[in-house]
Write a protein that binds this DNA or RNA. Structure first.
Lengths: 88, 88, 88, 88
DNA sequence: TCAGATAAAATCGCGC
DNA sequence: GCGCGATTTTATCTGA
C-alpha cells in the first residue's frame, strides 16, 4: 500500500508521472516547431543564394498572410449577417 | 520570342516563378508551424483540464529549456578553449 | 482664449508639450545607453589589447548571465509552487 | 617563486585576475545598461498611463533618430567635399 | 567591406 | 485589457 500514486496528504497530490508526460509531449512539439522554423530559415537562405532579397520576401509573405486573414475576417462577418438574416 | 522569362531589361530580371515557389514553400512550412503551435496549446489545455497549473508548467518547460541551452553554451566555450590552446 | 492647450476638437486633443517631454526623456536615456554600450566595447578592445580572446570573454559573460537568469527563474518557480500550495 | 603570475608553461599563461577584472567591469556596465533600458520602458509605461500611444511614440523616436543620423551623415559628406576643395 | 553570428527592439499572442 | 512571455524582425558587431 501507499504506492506513490496513493499519497493521501490533503494538499500535494501531484501526479508526477502524468505531469511529466504532458511536459514531454510539449517539449517534443516545441522541438518540431523549432525544426520547422529552421527549415523556414533555410528556405530564405536558399532564396538569398538565388539572388532574392530576403527582406522583401518577408514583406510579401506578411502581406499575403494579412490578405488571407482579412478575407477570412470578411467571410466571417458575411456569415454573421447571413445568419442574422435567416433568423428574421 | 519575348516570353516572360526572356525579359531583357538590364536590372529587373526577377524570376517570378522561382520566387513564387520559394514563397509557397515558406507558406506551407508556416502553416505547419501554426498547426504545431495549436497542438501545444491543446496539450496545455488538456493538462489544465486534468488539474495541472499551466503557469507552473510553462515555467518548468522554460527552465528545462534554459538548462539545455546552458549545456550547449558550455560545450561551445569548451570548444573555444580547446581551439585557443591548439593555436598556441 | 483658445490657447494651444485649449483646443476643443472632440478627438485630437494631443498634449504636444507633454508628449515632447516624454520623447525628450526617452532620447536622453537612449543617449546614455549608447554611451554605456560604447564603454563596453572599449573594455573589450582593451582586453583584446592585453591578449585576451574577445570571443571567449563574450561566452563567459553570456554563461554567467544565464546562470543568474536561471537562478531567478528557479526562485520564481519556487514562489509559484508555494503559492499553489497556499491556495489549497 | 612560481607565484601564480609567473607560470611558465609555453602555452596557458592566462592571467585570471586580470581577466576577472575585465569581466566584472563589463558586467557592471551591462547592469547599468539594463537599468537604463528599464528606465526607458518605465517612461513609455508612464506615457501610456497618460493616454499616449506607445507604438506611435516609438515611431517618433525612431524617425527623429534617423533624422539625426541623416544630418550627421550629410555634414560628414559636406566636410569631405570641403576638404577636397581645400586640397585643390 | 561583407557575411555570418549575436544581441536588442518591436510585435504578437496568451493567460489572468 | 493588460502585463508577461515568446517570437520575429532589426541592428550591431566580429572575423574573414
Amino acid at each position: 500500500m501507499n504506492k506513490p500514486e496513493m499519497i493521501t496528504a490533503e494538499s500535494s497530490d501531484v501526479d508526477g508521472g502524468h505531469l511529466r508526460a504532458f511536459i514531454e509531449r510539449i517539449e517534443r512539439l516545441e522541438e518540431e516547431k523549432r525544426t520547422i522554423a529552421d527549415d523556414i530559415k533555410e528556405v530564405y537562405a536558399e532564396a538569398k543564394g538565388n539572388g532574392f532579397d530576403v527582406k522583401i520576401m518577408r514583406k510579401i509573405v506578411s502581406i499575403r498572410r494579412m490578405d488571407r486573414e482579412k478575407r477570412i475576417e470578411e467571410e466571417t462577418i458575411l456569415d454573421l449577417y447571413l445568419q442574422a438574416l435567416g433568423e428574421i
